[in-house]
């Protein structure tokens, strides 16, 4: 594998982010007449302005934020567990977050205070990360990690169904698809507002852990002997992953494979350094989810596909290829 830091990576990703954001903003059931929007800035009643500001903009912003969270959390988890398969979806952290969000949402807690829904996601995600950490062990083998992930995913998704079953709501059962596959359709600025504080806090935790993740390349004792308080640093990352994944999942469901695929694509371009991987993975995650959301709207503008279907269609084959390659490298 060629692995060399590329100077053009960040400018390229920022440009891609801008383009993907614009593409997502412009895709929808109808072409948006931009002239209408701008000429009628003062005219509040314009439908195009309403559609752009209240429907498409919140949706695209949320897609970007969710993607950034998942890409960043994936990069951080892979660094922490020193395992290239440790995406938040594959090891069950996303489903645990969804479980936390489902419980707070369907049993009415989410209505009590704005922060309770993302908090529910956060608690679920934190439990998920801790569970995978203690179940798979620190020096997790690929097999151990995947097995633990399968178990956590199975338990979490069946508990989601159970919780939805118990909620006295005629729509709850059909909404299981949203929680397991994810979507940003029809999200409003309120969804963005409740998730953003948690997401930003998580980004700070994770982006500040770059140096520690670098040192962790040499094992836990290696990192300790390089001056890092491993318990505190690890807790920092667990909290960061819980904040980002918890907030993202509680407002968009479980959009799979982003946290797995994105760090993989970026890794060779940053010389495989776990610390340098973080920021580009966040941006590339945003690009991936924005493109997936644009694809969702282009493929079926009326009866919308779930976002997770598109990311899984990209991520699934990628994962197969990864497994294939790892088998051959192991031999």
């Amino acid at each position: 594998m060629r692995s060399k830091p590329r100077w053009w990576l960040l400018p390229f990703l920022v440009l891609a982010l801008l383009l993907a954001f614009l593409l997502d903003l412009l895709s929808g059931p109808f072409p948006l007449k931009l002239s209408e929007v701008f000429s009628s800035g003062a005219r509040k009643g314009s439908v195009d302005a309403l559609v752009l500001l209240e429907i498409r903009l919140p949706r695209s912003i949320l897609a970007g934020l969710v993607g950034a969270c998942l890409g960043l959390a994936g990069a951080a988890m892979q660094g922490l567990l020193r395992n290239p398969l440790a995406g938040p979806g594959l090891v069950g952290v996303s489903n645990c977050a969804a479980l936390g969000a489902v419980i707070t949402f369907y049993f009415g807690f989410a209505g009590l205070a704005w922060y309770l829904l993302p908090l529910g996601g956060l608690v679920g995600a934190a439990l998920g990360v801790m569970l995978i950490f203690f179940l798979a062990g620190r020096e997790a083998s690929v097999l151990g990690l995947i097995l633990a992930g399968v178990a956590i995913n199975a338990v979490a998704s069946s508990l989601i169904s159970l919780a939805l079953n118990f909620s006295e709501n005629p729509y709850a059962m059909s909404e299981i698809v949203y929680w397991l596959l994810g979507s940003v359709a029809d999200s409003s600025i309120r969804d963005v507002a409740i998730a953003v504080p948690f997401m930003f806090a998580g980004w700070l935790c994770l982006l500040g852990s770059g140096r520690f993740l670098d040192a962790l390349s040499f094992g836990e004792e290696g990192a300790q002997s390089m001056g890092f308080n491993i318990g505190r640093q690890r807790a920092f990352i667990i909290v960061g992953v819980a904040l980002t994944v918890g907030a993202a999942v509680s407002v968009s469901g479980n959009v799979g494979f982003v946290g797995l695929v994105v760090p993989h694509l970026i890794r060779p371009l940053v010389g495989a350094e776990p610390g340098r991987l973080l920021l580009p993975s966040a941006i590339a995650g945003a690009v991936m989810v924005l493109l997936a959301d644009a694809a969702v709207q282009l493929l079926s503008p009326q009866q919308e596909l779930k976002l997770g279907v598109v990311t899984a269609l990209v991520g699934g084959p990628f994962f197969l290829w990864l497994v294939y390659r790892m088998r051959h490298e192991a031999v």
């Binding site: 060399k4 390349s217 040499f218 094992g219 002997s225 390089m226 001056g227 010389g271 495989a272």
Partner: peptide, 29 residues
């Protein structure tokens, strides 16, 4: 970490890092 540097038994890096970057990581403390 600035006074004592440690080389454990297993020095295998988990990631395909450039040697120059590995050496530079010695300055982390």
């Amino acid at each position: 970490a600035r006074q004592m540097a440690y080389l454990p038994q297993n020095t295998e890096s988990h990631w395909p890092l450039l040697a120059a970057r590995v050496i530079a990581m010695g300055r982390l403390p």
